[in-house]
């Protein structure tokens, strides 16, 4: 397996608070990595550091063989990093298709006509095709989450960073979203998925990373990690899955 993403010794503090503390993460091409940890453990900040919307105090990030530590967020998108937000951030004044079109044209650096097919495919994959002409501001929560995914897919990512995409959904909705993500992984897309809904995570990921206070607690075989005393300790009282 070739390493696709390698984050080394990432550190980020806000004032006296170390949100991410000497954290190293690596991801192989085609691998699906799950990330668990209590609220405030630094999971989302880790994704922000990888997408470049937050700058680390220390550490470096190598993606597909090149150092992207100083690349701007849009350059990292072009390199093949796509992400979804925990709280969806659709372009509310635009239709669903236009939302995806922005990713398709700017993420792939294509003109609009060239990216129509890719956009339609992204909408089809996420089940949003019938909603193409709906204003994104009028979507339900599940549809907004799916739009986050469709938009990221339209940018033609090599790695997909998912931030609690199943959070807030019903059991049935989680099930169908898991199926979508699983099929993306099966096609060779690399995935880093932060999730509190552990059974959803375990259905998809090859490896599990547990973090707390910005540090790595455990990293390895999902069943082993989730049952390890360290992880149980961290989760005790906060999650009962």
């Amino acid at each position: 397996m070739t390493v696709l993403l390698e984050a080394e010794h990432l550190t980020k503090s806000y004032g006296a608070l170390k949100v991410v503390d000497d954290l190293s993460v690596s991801l192989d091409a085609g691998e699906a990595l799950g990330v668990v940890g209590p609220n405030g453990a630094g999971k989302t900040t880790m994704l922000n550091l990888i997408t470049g919307t937050v700058h680390p105090d220390a550490g470096r990030i190598v993606f597909a063989g090149s150092d992207i530590s100083h690349a701007a967020p849009h350059e990292r998108c072009h390199a093949g990093i796509g992400r979804t937000y925990q709280i969806p951030r659709p372009f509310e004044g635009m239709t669903v298709f236009e939302n995806v079109l922005v990713g398709g044209t700017f993420g792939r650096r294509h003109n609009e006509r060239e990216s129509y097919d890719a956009c339609a495919l992204a909408l089809h994959r996420t089940g949003l095709l019938p909603r193409s002409n709906t204003l994104a501001g009028n979507l339900t929560l599940l549809e907004r989450k799916r739009l986050e995914l469709a938009r990221a897919l339209a940018t033609d990512p090599r790695v997909l960073l998912l931030d609690e995409i199943a959070g807030g959904l019903t059991e049935h909705e989680v099930h169908s979203l898991v199926a979508t993500i699983k099929s993306l992984g099966a096609e060779g897309l690399s995935i880093i998925w932060i999730e509190h809904i552990v059974h959803a995570l375990l259905a998809v990921v090859d490896r599990l990373l547990a973090i707390d206070f910005g540090r790595k607690v455990a990293d390895g075989e999902p069943a082993v990690v989730i049952n390890s005393p360290e992880v149980r300790d961290v989760y005790l009282g906060s999650e009962a899955e």
């Binding site: 849009h74 951030r89 659709p90 372009f91 922005v102 993420g107 990221a152």
Partner: peptide, 12 residues
């Protein structure tokens, strides 16, 4: 609508 999300779509 959302500057940060737009950047992640590859917009400079």
């Amino acid at each position: 609508d959302n500057q940060q999300a737009a950047q992640l779509m590859g917009i400079d």
